[in-house]
Design a protein around this nucleic acid. Sequence first.
DNA 1: CAATATTTGTGACAATTATCACAAAGAGTC
DNA 2: GACTCTTTGTGATAATTGTCACAAATATTG
Lengths: 243, 243
Amino acid sequence: MASRKTSRIIQLADALSGRRVLHLRDAAALLGVSEMTVRRDVADNPGQFTFLGGHIVPAGEMDGDMPYELAREADSHAAAKREACIHAAQHIRPDETIFIDCGTTLEYLVDLIPENYSITAVCYSLNVADRLTRKPNVRIVMLGGVYHPASASFSGNSGLETLDSLGINVAFLSAAGVDPGRGATCVHFHEVAVKQKVISLARESHLVVDLSKIGKLKPAFFAPMNVFRSVITEDGDTLFPAV
Amino acid sequence: MASRKTSRIIQLADALSGRRVLHLRDAAALLGVSEMTVRRDVADNPGQFTFLGGHIVPAGEMDGDMPYELAREADSHAAAKREACIHAAQHIRPDETIFIDCGTTLEYLVDLIPENYSITAVCYSLNVADRLTRKPNVRIVMLGGVYHPASASFSGNSGLETLDSLGINVAFLSAAGVDPGRGATCVHFHEVAVKQKVISLARESHLVVDLSKIGKLKPAFFAPMNVFRSVITEDGDTLFPAV
DNA sequence: CAATATTTGTGACAATTATCACAAAGAGTC
DNA sequence: GACTCTTTGTGATAATTGTCACAAATATTG
């Protein structure tokens, strides 16, 4: 049952497990088949390999492995998001516990955590968690649950219960839409429970969005504006009257 | 002294810190210069960037990505591990729920889940979860908790409690040592609670290890051999008498 | 301000990679 | 063996990427 094709895939993965990339030419030579066949093998296993230039790379080197929604949005407003996070990072203090919402925006915040700060970061999405692992002094707490590909995040009761045992100093929330009257909204309903519970538990919550989100209304409402200590955009903090 | 050139290099590095690759076209647009200039910038900083196909990639991120321990072990016995997983994959049946332990070994099992199988996979490590996201028909359940860099996994009470609400058909366990008399052991104590609870809940448990693990004894004991339906190595399944 | 160096953009061309259609080879069935 | 179906290889062609020389623009210096 191990067809010739599967055995080649295994050989490929094997060869690639050491190296970072493998040129099509070498792969063909290694497997003793034509380059065309290798192309087809790779194309048939988009979960495992991708092409980059003339090279085969493990899927994941490209952004092709990111959930579609995230990957698409990744570029747009990247500069604005980064700017917003630079301002948001001012609210991170050493030895405290912060919550980092899902989405692409707050990925930049992770990069901006000072290397020498020993903090605890609570998150519930894969992309944020992944980035946090590059910060040696950050203790990471992950809220588990069922995976939602669209936002690369998890949700479930146990994740919510975990929150009860945490003391969160500062929560950084993201949103897909900010309507001045209605408040903050997102696209995926499963995020709502997490966001709301975090807001209710955290000592202070900040909404971090780029200006393109202002004025938009998305399906899932999760908070009125007055629960946030500030709304942080690329233009800086907009303070709200304390509640 | 911050020449225009250096400032572009910084911007480039910045943009690349998010994505893994950046297409020349996008880089040029982002920096507001011609593609030729970007080419020269990249060529002048061989320590920082490389070209791969039409894309810019960070130069030497061979191991900076994975937790050190995992990265180092990743190569050794890779072929054996993959072989073992090929045998293990025989125990995956459609529409069932499986548990996948942490470590590098079982990453290969993820790749071997048939694309058309709708299964639920329970895991508690980042590397396994990451790989699972490439399987569109797999529902992923993540056990959360505090992150342990050495094994890229999470542990905590809430994760254990999540297990109570799950029905696991087949559990695939990994181990760092298998002593015929003493049983299965691992390196990190925090894994023990998860492994033990999974074994007690799953309908059948299999231990998947390459032969190099046999005869070794590691600090954290988690199960005697007779709890496993089989021990799966690159040589195939070794059945145990049902308990 | 000129004179000189450095940086940048452009277009032409070479090299490489991607895609496709179709033929050849092999595997499985009766 | 004759039939089908699948897999693989080949060559032509399109699209993309890489390289280079040279002109234009910008910075630097005295």
